[in-house]
Every structure is written in C-alpha cells, then in structure tokens.
C-alpha cells in the first residue's frame, strides 16, 4: 500500500462522511468475515458489496480442467521422489535418511560412490576421514546446497522441464543399495567397516528394517558377485535431471581424489579394490 493509500484509508476512518450521509461501505465485522469465508451469497450481501461478493464467488468457482493440466507431471515427479527413497513407508524414519531424501537421486549416487570408497578404504585402512572429506566435496562440488529451500528450488526447476519422463527411479535406489551392501559386507567384522560413514550405514539399516536384517536385505546383492546396477551407466544422463546430477557429482569427486572413485561410480561392476587408491 502506498503512503497515499494508507493516508486515504486512515483519514476515511478518522473523518465521518458527514457531507455524504452514512458511509455506504461501512461493513460490520461479522458480515466481512462471512464474505471472506465465502458464506455470504452475493444476493444476500449488503447492496454496496454485491459486486464484490460476486467477484469473490467467481474467484472461488469450481475448478476448471485447465487448472489440473499439470497433474500428470506432478504425479510423475512424486513417483520419482517416492522411488528415490528406499522403503519410503518404513516406520520411524531417522533424520539422517530424511536428509538424504532431500538430496534425492544425487544423494543416492553419492552413497553408492561413498560405499565404493568404503570398500577401498576398508582394504587399506585409511577411512573414515577421507571418506568423510569425499562426502563433503561431493556434496559441495555437485552444487547441492544444504538447506531444503535451495535444494527444492533447483530440483523444482529441473522437474518442471523433465519430470514428464523419468522412468529411472528404481535404478538409483538399487545402485545405492548395492553400493551400501558391498561396503557393509567388506567392512563386516572389521573396525573400518563400522567406522566408515555411520550415517550411510544407518540409512542401510533403515532400508533393511533394522541393523540385524542387513545381511538378509543385502543377500541378493552380495551373492550376485558384487555387480552394480547395469542400468545406471547404460542410461544417458539426459533422460533424468537428477540422475545426471548424481553422476556428475560422482565424477567430480573422482577427479578431486585421483580419479579412481569417479570411474567406479560409472561402472558399478568393477571391483573397487582393483583401482589405485588415490592416497597410497
């Protein structure tokens, strides 16, 4: 409201409309509230508010089909989000997993890469600190800001152009699962495995339905010979914005740390232990 408007309003309240009879636009509180609540039919509104009431009614008219034109895209985006969260319905989700949710597929790819780093680290005893640094570099290098606001903003921008065709949600989930399971298996019984990025293992435990059920949950992955998700590397990144971001973050980190892990992300089937460890 401009100053002039404010002044106008104020003076109107201060000065009774003496020369013009009673203020025809005076409105008692109850009537105003009923108008604003859409509870007053225009025909029942005070005469000087009938047109306003009609405008309000028109603003609140039943939906038209064009207002729902974005439904397919919105549902597709919802589906992509839901599939990016392993076992979305798991009860009593912990905050750590919720945090991963906000990073969506990028985070899933990051977890997979971290898991590969975890396997390499477990073999040489250099974790967890490097892994932790990798995580920070990955998240920072991918341009994924922490606060939900910005993450949602960037994801929203992408979604508005790409959400219509994303069939790839399960791949990322699978990739994260495979990576985590291999890291878990490699570290099982050893100190490194336990220390390695506890948050990632908490996510795995959540997905498995409890820490005691990880072995069962991971059985198919571990018994399959450690091969990752073939789908991830075979799909063009451009088919899915989040997917592209996830791969980008993996490779960026790989360069920052010597290149081995970035490749590992792209080819889930290559045993990470055959890769040169960048630190040793």
């Amino acid at each position: 409201m401009s100053d002039e408007d404010a002044l106008d309003d104020e003076m109107r309240h201060l000065r009774p409309p003496s020369g013009f009879g009673p203020d025809p636009l005076a409105l008692d509180e109850g009537t105003a509230e009923r108008l604003l609540a859409g509870q007053l039919h225009p025909a029942d509104a005070p005469p000087d508010y009938r047109r306003a009431a009609m405008v309000l009614a028109a603003a609140a008219a039943p939906p038209s089909p064009d207002e729902l034109a974005g439904e397919r895209q919105a549902v597709a985006a919802f589906t992509a989000v839901a599939r990016s969260i392993p076992h979305r319905a798991a009860p009593r989700r912990q905050p750590v997993l919720t945090r991963f949710v906000s990073f969506k597929l990028a985070a899933a790819a990051t977890i997979a890469a971290l898991s590969l780093a975890g396997v390499a680290g477990a073999a040489t005893g250099t974790l967890p600190d490097p892994a932790q640094r990798v995580a920070h570099q990955m998240l920072g290098g991918a341009g994924v800001p922490g606060p939900d606001d910005h993450a949602a903003q960037t994801a929203g921008d992408k979604s508005s152009t790409t959400s219509g065709h994303h069939p790839t949600g399960p791949d990322a989930t699978g990739a994260a699962k495979a990576g985590l399971c291999r890291a878990w298996a490699a570290g099982q019984g050893g100190e490194n495995g336990k220390k390695f990025d506890a948050t990632a293992f908490q996510a795995l435990a959540e997905a498995a339905g409890g820490a005691g059920r990880i072995a069962e949950y991971c059985a198919d992955v571990i018994s399959s010979g450690g091969h990752g998700q073939q789908g991830q590397s075979s799909k063009p990144p451009t088919t899915d914005a989040e997917h592209g971001q996830g791969q980008g973050s993996g490779q960026g980190s790989g360069q920052g740390n010597g290149g081995g892990q970035g490749q590992g992300q792209g080819n889930g089937g290559v045993p990470p232990s055959t890769r040169p460890n960048p630190k040793h």
Partner: peptide
Amino acid sequence: CEDLAAETWLEVARGLDR
C-alpha cells in the same frame, strides 16, 4: 504462477513423509 505451483508440489512430494 504455474512454475511456482509445480515447484510447490515437488517440495510437498519430498516432504510428505515428514
């Protein structure tokens, strides 16, 4: 308005379980 609505629904989808 339409872009903002789409962004809103995406954020709702992501935050729904919370």
